[in-house]
């Protein structure tokens, strides 16, 4: 049965259900117990599971991330709460050098079944150190899976799958969408990694959006429909593994693609997906593949400037329209 709940409730439910199902699942991070995180996502969990399993840590990310990696190697399934995606920089060694490589370097003898739960997204007026979308950093490291839920339904289904995965998974929630409501079944469900979600079918251009940019792409497809352009909208849901087959199939149909992601454009997710399309669907392309990421500047604190750095439905529609009309996007 479907009902509407918020993105934060969906996350909360996913963790609670998994903690009930499996006693090795623990939750640790800053303000996860008493405060329930600044976004109130985790309220009520400490009451149900106690401070043994819902652990408030000191403000020391490298320390508690290291604890989690060790716990994961020795039989626990920790969920590490990194309050802001920007703090990933503090746990790079524990995550990328230890968690990501232990299974490989132990000859398969050790697993690291941990989840790093964090967030991304600008336009919350949080300035340059609390507004970044850093999923490309971890997607670059072999051994880490990266999930980018775009709706409450995906937030719950992907998080449950992440907790059950025997390898490290980093899941990024869009901090602006915590209060967004969406249909979530009451029955238990999981969302398989590496399965893209086709939101709109179209023939003229494929808009590939991740996380916060999925709704941007949907809104852009509405704008394009007014111009007589039929846009297909696709949400990969996980970028590692990436549902390359679905993306290529769509682009082979439409011959055009715009890839939209809130991470910085340079060397980012958009670049990776665009490159794969150009490489593997080259003879099906009727226009250059367009990347739209966040502007390559530190996210400004000024609201007027901050809003300019993130792709908007208007910008996505303008670029898509331009390639559909065969205009030169760059000088030939």
């Amino acid at each position: 049965m479907d009902r509407e709940i918020t993105h934060s409730q969906a996350v909360n439910e996913a963790i609670a259900e998994e903690m009930r199902r499996d006693s090795t699942v623990i939750l640790l991070g800053e303000d996860v117990a008493e405060a329930g995180t600044p976004f109130k996502v985790l309220s009520g969990l400490v009451e149900e599971f106690g401070t043994e399993r819902v652990i408030d840590t000191p403000i020391a990310e490298p320390g508690f991330m290291g604890i989690a990696v060790g716990a994961a190697m020795t039989g626990m399934r920790p969920i590490v709460d990194i309050m802001f995606g920007d703090f990933l920089f503090l746990i790079m060694d524990q995550l990328c050098n230890q968690a990501a490589k232990t299974h490989y370097m132990s000859g398969g003898k050790l697993n690291v079944p941990l989840v790093v739960r964090t967030n991304l997204g600008a336009t919350r007026r949080s300035a340059a150190q609390h507004s970044q979308s850093l999923h490309a950093l971890v997607a670059h490291i072999p051994g880490l899976k990266v999930a980018l839920p775009a709706t409450p339904y995906e937030a719950k289904g992907l998080l449950k799958t992440a907790i059950r995965d025997d390898n490290p998974v980093v899941i990024f929630e869009d901090k602006l969408s915590y209060q967004m409501k969406g249909n979530v079944p009451e029955e238990e469900y999981l969302i398989e990694f590496g399965q893209a979600n086709l939101l709109r079918e179209g023939n003229d251009v494929t808009l590939i959006g991740t996380s916060s940019m999925v709704q941007t792409c949907v809104a852009a497809s509405d704008l394009l429909a007014e111009e007589g352009i039929s846009a297909e909208v696709m949400d990969p849901r996980t970028i590692v593994p990436l549902d390359e087959r679905a993306i290529l199939e769509s682009v082979r149909k439409t011959s055009r693609a715009v890839v939209v992601d809130e991470g910085h454009q340079n060397y980012g997710i958009t670049a990776e997906i665009a490159a794969r399309i150009s490489e593997k669907a080259f003879y099906h392309l009727d226009a250059p593949v367009i990347r739209l990421g966040a502007m390559d500047v530190p996210v400004p604190f000024s609201p007027a400037l901050e809003d300019l750095t993130v792709p908007t439905p208007e910008l996505v529609a303008e670029k898509a329209l331009s390639i559909c009309r065969g205009e030169l996007v760059h000088d030939a």
């Binding site: 011959s255 080259f282 003879y283 099906h284 392309l285 009727d286 226009a287 030169l328 000088d331 030939a332």
Partner: peptide
């Protein structure tokens, strides 16, 4: 805005075309 001097005598067309 195609600069004919820059096409090296090639005809410019999309890969699909």
């Amino acid at each position: 805005i195609i600069d004919k001097n820059n096409t090296h005598g090639k005809i410019l067309a999309s890969p699909k075309a």
